[in-house]
């Protein structure tokens, strides 16, 4: 079959004009416009560019939601099987628009989409995780080289075939870790790598170390006596029976449990769901992980105003950082609504 492809480009590549025409609203043109010629030639009879959507870079940047909405509508009206955007080369607003359009197409129309740009285009950092971006030169002189990988990757996506490695296929790494089988077992690779490292020969690590981001410290708690303190834990303390089925490892959810009136976490009512440490001690007395008993005591003594009625818990065992970050954001919203002043987060 011949796939129906819609091409997205800006006002400049559509021949409408330069910066003075950047306010161009989205419009649909039948068939091929501008750089679509080269793409169509590369597709051969496997895919046809049925229409081209054009939008001014300035208009898109200033009206992102509205423009996206209109563009998605135009693409949907073409009964497209896939969308190809750009190449945007090193044009920042164009690259951002291409990335945003491809992401919206994937999310809302559930069809393949890809774009192409220069690695330093700001659109790369914004959208590389969401969409495939083929690497190009920094100017339109690189069009001829960009077209073959754009066409071949889009066809692979349309046919549901698996993509090879970024360097082989010509796209920018999305930052996702993907499993593969190498030629040699890990121990052999380690020994060879060590020999190279000792000889000062070049070698390639299989896992480049991540750089963790930093958050500035929040201001200190000013008034302890009047403070509402909340407890959060990654130690997996849950009501016995784990009512929300939080996974022992790689948790996909967190629990929110009411401890109003509870002055001690007893082994009759609480246990740990964590699969990464010996549960004997936490199961015997969950206060060893989540110190409710002493906090309740201090609350009674008036050292602080209130222990928050709800505690939040998950299992920090092989749980992806991205997942934990999502839990953190969601929990923070709930803590704000509950007028909590400070948080004690315990980990095992």
């Amino acid at each position: 079959m011949t796939y129906r492809v819609v091409h997205y480009i800006n006002q400049f590549f559509a021949g409408i004009g330069g910066e003075e025409q950047a306010g161009q609203k989205p419009l649909l043109k039948e068939g091929i416009v501008g750089p679509g010629q080269a793409l169509a030639a590369e597709f051969g009879d496997k895919a046809t560019i049925v229409a081209t959507v054009v939008c001014g870079d300035g208009y898109f940047a200033e009206n992102m939601d509205e423009a996206t909405e209109t563009i998605i509508g135009l693409i949907a009206s073409c009964k497209a099987d896939a969308v190809i955007a750009g190449p945007a080369f090193n044009a920042g607003r164009y690259g951002t628009a291409c990335g945003a359009v491809c992401t919206a197409v994937k999310d809302r129309l559930a069809i393949p989409a890809l774009t192409a740009m220069y690695p330093e285009n700001p659109g790369v950092d914004l959208f590389r995780k969401e969409t495939i971006i083929v690497e190009t030169a920094d100017s339109a002189r690189g069009l001829r080289k960009a077209v073959p990988p754009m066409a071949s990757i889009l066809l692979k996506l349309l046919e549901g075939r698996e993509l090879g490695l970024p360097a082989e296929e010509g796209y920018l790494p999305q930052g996702l870790r993907k499993n593969l089988f190498r030629a040699e077992p890990g121990a052999e690779r380690a020994a060879s790598m060590l020999v190279k490292k000792l000889r000062g020969e070049p070698f390639e690590t299989e896992y480049p170390m991540p750089v963790f981001d930093r958050v500035p410290p929040a201001p200190a708690l000013k008034d302890l006596k009047g403070a509402r303190i909340a407890l959060v834990t990654s130690g997996g303390i849950v009501p016995k029976g784990n009512p929300d089925h939080i996974e022992a490892s790689s948790a996909s959810r967190y629990g929110e449990y009411d401890i109003s009136g509870v002055s001690d976490l007893t082994s009759a009512d609480y246990a740990t769901a964590h699969g990464g440490y010996d549960p004997t001690y936490a199961d015997g007395d969950a206060d060893r992980v989540l110190p409710v008993d002493v906090l309740r005591e201090m609350e009674r003594e008036g050292i602080f105003a209130k222990l928050h009625d709800l505690f939040y818990t998950t299992v920090g065992n092989g749980t992806p950082v991205a997942m934990a970050a999502r839990f953190g954001r969601e929990i923070a919203v709930k803590l704000r609504e509950a007028a909590v002043d400070a948080v004690i987060l315990t980990s095992t």
């Binding site: 981001d213 958050v215 410290p217 929040a218 201001p219 200190a220 708690l221 959060v232 990654s234 998950t314 920090g316 934990a324 970050a325 839990f327 953190g328 954001r329 929990i331 923070a332 919203v333 803590l335 704000r336 909590v340 002043d341 400070a342 948080v343 004690i344 987060l345 315990t346 980990s347 095992t348």
Partner: peptide, 19 residues
């Protein structure tokens, strides 16, 4: 989790063993 809660503006103390 600890960073996201702090990012939202709450002072957080992380009490854990493996510093």
């Amino acid at each position: 989790m600890v960073k996201e809660i702090e990012r939202a503006g709450f002072p957080v103390v992380h009490m854990c063993t493996i510093i």
